[in-house]
Design a protein around this nucleic acid. Structure first.
Lengths: 110, 110
DNA sequence: TATAAATATTATAATTTTGTAATATACTAA
DNA sequence: TTAGTATATTACAAAATTATAATATTTATA
């Protein structure tokens, strides 16, 4: 049971473990209103099909939700706590930058 | 450049996106002291080689650090903020449980 | 009803991640 | 120096993730 919770936590992190999905959340965070898929396609510059799959992954984790309005589908963040997690990661990276570690490590692995 | 930061954020989440790595962090969080690899092997019940690789991934992201003491290598959490992130995820899951969503979704995808 | 627009789903090949097994390294003690 | 202990690294096959392309679904409108 504890086993299962751990697995659910790692699933949560998996949902955030892709640049496009991080960008989706940051875009939704910007104007805390709903954003339609069409606008996300424009702003993020990714393929419609690809974006749709990434949205699906975030939706399954209940990090975002959507409502259909006419032809369009509007997405918004469901758990604002997810945003504070993103902010915390940003702060950790900032700290690592100060110590000169973050960028070097990042560059090393490419 | 912003592009690169987004990529570093998703790399950070990737480091947490595995049950064994979540368990490593939670084990290190328990007694906020150092823990040797041998103890982690015991407690987590995973292969030595496998554990070592997971430790390596967390080390690269600077989430943990190690010091060698004789034959043993002691690990500890480097950025305590990483733990608060884990706690936040726990709270989000708890909320989702209350709404009856979390477990169902988890079970559905197996 | 037929067409078009917006989004989702499916299939699939390429890439990445993972676990196991084997080997290597670093340190201690005899 | 030799043997033993603790941990890391490497090689590789299996499993999971990803992007692209093709197709399907839903809704609006002519």
């Amino acid at each position: 049971m504890e086993e299962r919770i751990v697995s659910m936590k790692s699933d949560f992190f998996k949902a955030l473990a892709h640049p496009t999905r991080v960008r989706i959340l940051e875009r939704l965070a910007k104007n805390s209103e709903e954003v339609c898929v069409c606008e996300l396609i424009e702003d993020l510059g990714v393929e419609q099909s690809n974006l749709s799959q990434h949205l699906s992954i975030l939706r399954k984790q209940q990090i975002i939700t959507s409502t259909k309005v006419g032809l369009k589908v509007m997405y918004r963040i469901k758990y604002p706590e997810a945003l504070t997690i993103l902010e915390k990661v940003h702060k950790i990276l900032a700290q690592q930058f100060q110590e000169g570690e973050a960028l070097m490590r990042h560059l090393a692995d490419r």
